[in-house]
Amino acid sequence: MSLVNLAHVCSHLQNASKARLGLTSIPVSKLHVNLMLGLQREGFLSSVTLGGTTPPKPFLLQPTTSPEELETMADTLADEPWHAYPTLPESQDGRKAPPSPLGEERVFDVHVPLNPARRRLWLGLKYWNNEPVLRKMKLISKPTRRIWLTSEELGKITRTRQAGFVKGLTTPGECMFVTTDRGILEARECVERRLGGMALCRIA
C-alpha cells in the first residue's frame, strides 16, 4: 500500500480537474481501484474503467442494438416470455446452441493488456456549472506518518469537530476516505457501521 503513489494520484486528479480534462488515467493498484470506485459512488467521478495505454472506446462509439432490433426483441418477448431466461451456451451433446430468437447479444469489451505494467485505470471527471466537481484532494495519512482513527473519532470528524490531529469535515460536501478491514469506505459510512481504520484522503 504505497501512499506515495496515492499522493501522486491526488495531485494528478487536482491538476486534471483544473485543466478541465474529461478523461484521465492513473496507475492500477487495488488501493487505487477501490478508492476510485468509492469516489464514483460519492459522485466525484463519472466512470472508472480498466484499460490499456490508450483510452477505452467511449460508450457512444461502441456498437449498439438498433431501435428496430429492440422492437422485434420486445415483440418476441411478449409472445414467448421464456426467452428472457439465459440459455446454456452449449448443449450436452457437444452441439452448438441454436441462435437466440432475441438476436445476438452485444457485449462491450474493453481491451485490457495482458501485461499488468501496461494497464491503466481510466477515470471520467465531472464538471457542473463550468466548475469541476472534484476540486481538492489531499492525503491525510502520509507515507511517513500513517493515521488510524477509531469510529468515535470519525464520528467527531464527520460532525465538523477536530479529532486527534485530523481537522473536521467543515467545508460543505467534504468527504473523507478510510481504509478498513471491510474495504475502503467513506468516513460517514464507517461511522454508520462503527468501523475504524486508516484515514487516506479528504476530498472537496
Partner: peptide, 10 residues
C-alpha cells in the same frame, strides 16, 4: 458553494 448545488453536481 451551496449544498443543493453540490448535490446536483454529484
Amino acid at each position: 458553494k451551496l449544498p443543493d448545488e453540490i448535490a446536483r453536481a454529484r
